[in-house]
């Protein structure tokens, strides 16, 4: 029997586990870099909700937000940092442990 404190759920990060942020990280993990609009369409949230959660992830050091211009049009792209990729990978391995029973 696993002692209560050793259960894998204790290693799940609240920052990653929140549903919208989980979706954002799942999308970013498959990409080198994603455009804000492509990410928004994949996660299916509004611009403001996506921005709010991106701020949380950026503050945690999990993502890097790059703002630039193509001609006169502003563009935002998002990518996972090394810490973000590690956190995502750890989160998935904990979920696999839980899924395994």
């Amino acid at each position: 029997m696993i002692p209560a404190g050793d259960h894998p759920r204790h290693r799940l990060s609240e920052i990653v586990h929140q549903p919208v942020r989980f979706s954002i990280l799942a999308g970013l993990a498959a990409a080198q870099e994603l455009d804000f609009k492509d990410l928004r369409d994949a996660v299916q949230v509004s611009d403001s909700v996506l921005s709010k959660h991106l701020s949380v992830l950026e503050e945690a050091g999990f993502i890097k937000v790059r703002k630039y211009f193509v001609g006169k049009r502003p563009r935002t792209s998002v990518s996972l940092t090394t810490a973000g990729r590690e956190a995502w990978s750890e989160h998935l391995s904990v979920l696999r442990e839980i899924a395994g029973g």
């Binding site: 799942a26 990410l39 994949a42």
Partner: peptide, 11 residues
């Protein structure tokens, strides 16, 4: 886990 995989593909 299934959702994470599907989201990665669709994104």
């Amino acid at each position: 886990l299934a959702r994470a995989e599907s989201l990665g593909s669709s994104a």
